[in-house]
Deep mutational scan, measured.
Amino acid sequence: MGTYKLILNGKTLKGETTTEAVDAATAEKVFKQYANDNGVDGEWTYDDATKTFTVTE
């Protein structure tokens, strides 16, 4: 398990959240659902060194 971070750079929603997941693929699924639930759809990037996903609208 590891802690993964999501940085939201949406047009109307900005912020950060974290999740505990077994791997990056699992964290990505959780974060994409979170972003979708909050109406954020954009370009995704992932930094393996910091376990950080970023979505920018």
Rank of each mutant, 00 (worst) to 15 (best):
M1I: 11
M1K: 11
M1S: 09
G2C: 13
G2R: 15
G2F: 15
T3C: 09
K5E: 03
K5Q: 05
K5V: 10
L6R: 00
I7F: 07
L8A: 04
G10I: 08
G10W: 06
K11Q: 11
K11F: 11
T12Q: 11
T12W: 15
T12I: 11
T12S: 11
K14R: 13
G15E: 08
G15Y: 14
G15Q: 12
G15M: 15
G15H: 11
G15V: 14
E16Q: 11
E16M: 12
E16L: 11
E16S: 11
T17A: 12
T18M: 10
T18A: 08
T18N: 07
T18F: 13
T18W: 15
T19R: 05
T19C: 10
E20F: 14
E20D: 14
A21I: 02
A21C: 07
V22Q: 11
V22A: 13
D23C: 05
D23M: 04
D23N: 09
D23I: 02
A24V: 12
A24W: 12
A25T: 09
A25P: 09
A25E: 11
T26K: 06
T26I: 06
T26N: 08
A27Q: 00
A27H: 00
A27D: 00
E28P: 00
E28T: 04
K29L: 14
K29A: 12
V30Q: 10
V30W: 15
F31K: 00
F31Y: 02
F31C: 02
K32P: 00
K32E: 04
Q33D: 06
Q33G: 07
Y34S: 02
A35V: 09
A35M: 05
N36Q: 15
N36T: 14
G39T: 04
G39E: 06
G39P: 02
G39R: 07
V40T: 04
D41K: 13
D41P: 04
D41H: 15
G42L: 03
G42F: 03
G42E: 01
E43D: 14
E43R: 09
W44T: 01
W44S: 01
W44Y: 02
T45N: 07
Y46K: 01
Y46E: 00
D47R: 03
D48H: 10
D48V: 12
D48W: 10
A49L: 13
A49P: 08
A49E: 11
K51Q: 10
K51A: 06
T52Y: 03
T52R: 03
F53P: 00
F53Y: 05
T54F: 07
T54S: 07
V55I: 10
V55Q: 01
V55W: 04
T56E: 06
E57Q: 12
E57M: 08
